[in-house]
Design a protein around this nucleic acid. Sequence first.
DNA 1: CCGGCATCTAGTCATTGACAAGTTCAGGCG
DNA 2: CGCCTGAACTTGTCAATGACTAGATGCCGG
Lengths: 195, 195
Amino acid sequence: MTSERERAYHHGDLRRVILDAALDVIATNGPGALSLRDLARRAGVSHAAPAHHFKDRTGLLTAVAAEGYALFADALAGAPDLRERGVAYVRFAATHPAHFRVMFQPDLHRTDDPDLLAARARATEALREGVADLPPAGRGEDDRLAGVAAWSLAHGFATLLLSGALTDAMEGRDPEEAFRSLAGLIFTAEGRGGG
Amino acid sequence: MTSERERAYHHGDLRRVILDAALDVIATNGPGALSLRDLARRAGVSHAAPAHHFKDRTGLLTAVAAEGYALFADALAGAPDLRERGVAYVRFAATHPAHFRVMFQPDLHRTDDPDLLAARARATEALREGVADLPPAGRGEDDRLAGVAAWSLAHGFATLLLSGALTDAMEGRDPEEAFRSLAGLIFTAEGRGGG
DNA sequence: CCGGCATCTAGTCATTGACAAGTTCAGGCG
DNA sequence: CGCCTGAACTTGTCAATGACTAGATGCCGG
């Protein structure tokens, strides 16, 4: 049975295999359930193999976060306006729950990692661009607050969604669509915006 | 031989001591850094003492979450209107970061724990009351969405705050006050009041 | 053919969570 | 007073894990 599938040494792309397995575990059972040895077993390699690619457990999570920010930046880039960028934010969280969760838990990864910083800078830039086309509210102070508000709204929705807190609040409804109308409710209609 | 300070057996309130130590660790280094043995060492008891009060590591975190929801419900109860309830939401997160973080990570605790469920129900009720005094927007569907929106806004702000993502967006500014004006920006009609 | 190098293996150690069994203490009851 | 029951805590132990070290393996260029 040890045919060409397992070519022993030089696995081919062990790094990716480990990463994918890690994402699977994190999405299912959370980052706490992550075990390097378990991942090694899944990949059919020795218990120390992952360490060569990621150094650490923290190193693995750092790689996850970095990849997450990169994908995140790409996901945000395509959106035409602020609202769709928010939708993209939510969609990313729903599509890449493991990445998302690790990204926003700084104590899980090494925050000074160069790759991570670069990817995060890209994502931040994408977010800023999105906020740029907010209707000019007033003074610059309010603009900044409005940006934080938009960010908070999308992030809160995404976070609650992943934590399962919204499951009964919107039974079987499509999260993206829900957020879209929710954002319309707030950001478009002037006058009684919040109503 | 051991002086009266440490009355050996029957520590007095070991449960609370362990809980407080746990909260300290979680707030500082995150839930992943939590070690029952470490907590035992801090409290000056044997390595198995915590298990008697919390059964498990998960049991300890469940207790943290339950306590968190109880405190949360109390914190929300005092607020006069929706906006102030949001402020209370943010304040709770800032004041009880460890509780907050554990509360919204279901894979950390036992979600079927009776105490947890009871406390969470109280908190949920307090949240619902807050949403109830939203201006009636239109149909019930929109009302529900508006509630989710308010919740998302507060939760997102609180979460981003705790993850440190807002640190440079609001340098040295008081988070509560920032959220208050932010919420005013969005939820009050046209008067984008004092920022 | 050979040497360097990244990749992976094998072995080891301290730490941890979980469990089992024993010990200490307080309070109730005869 | 003496016993006894149960809660609180200790001691001992085991498997699993993260991290480290040294060594084996195979690819690639010269």
